[in-house]
């Protein structure tokens, strides 16, 4: 077995995942690219387990199992965030989210907090 083949495959998968995260606008597609990156890391771990002789046997495969569990947790919370975003803004394009929204709300909160809350609440409930 030549370990360079799976290693290079994993490196290319990671690069493609990075490209996808930076290129895509749709949040669901960004999550898919993140999955590609996590898979590349898992492939590196499995190949290292077959290549390097460690003190504890099979520790790379145990690490890969842990990373799979982390990915499952990440995708659950990530999809909850994406669905909440869609409910609030009716769009999941990641480059249209105003990042300064929290500050913009915090400044007029001192002057007209009650009116702001009353105005924004039915939108949130929808």
């Amino acid at each position: 077995m030549r370990p360079v083949i799976p290693y290079v495959t994993a490196a290319l998968l990671f690069g493609l995942g990075t490209y996808g995260v930076l290129r895509r606008r749709n949040a669901v597609l960004v999550l898919m690219a993140v999955e590609l990156m996590l898979n590349a890391v898992n492939l590196i771990l499995i190949t290292a387990d077959a290549t390097v002789r460690a003190v504890l046997p099979h520790s790379g495969q145990v690490f890969a199992l842990f990373v799979i569990v982390l990915a499952a947790a990440e995708i659950g919370v990530g999809l909850a965030i994406v669905l909440q975003l869609y409910r609030m803004r009716a769009s999941v394009a990641v480059d249209t989210i105003p990042l300064g929204d929290r500050n913009a709300e915090a400044v007029p909160a001192t002057t007209s907090a009650a009116a702001q809350a009353a105005g924004s609440e039915p939108e949130g409930r929808r």
Binding site: R2, V4, Y7, V8, A11, L12, G15
Partner: peptide
């Protein structure tokens, strides 16, 4: 993305060459 992928690939190819395990 291309820089990350090709850079990592070059690093790993340089580390493992064409050895067998």
């Amino acid at each position: 993305g291309g820089g990350v992928g090709l850079g990592l690939a070059a690093l790993l190819v340089d580390a493992y060459r064409w050895t067998t395990v």
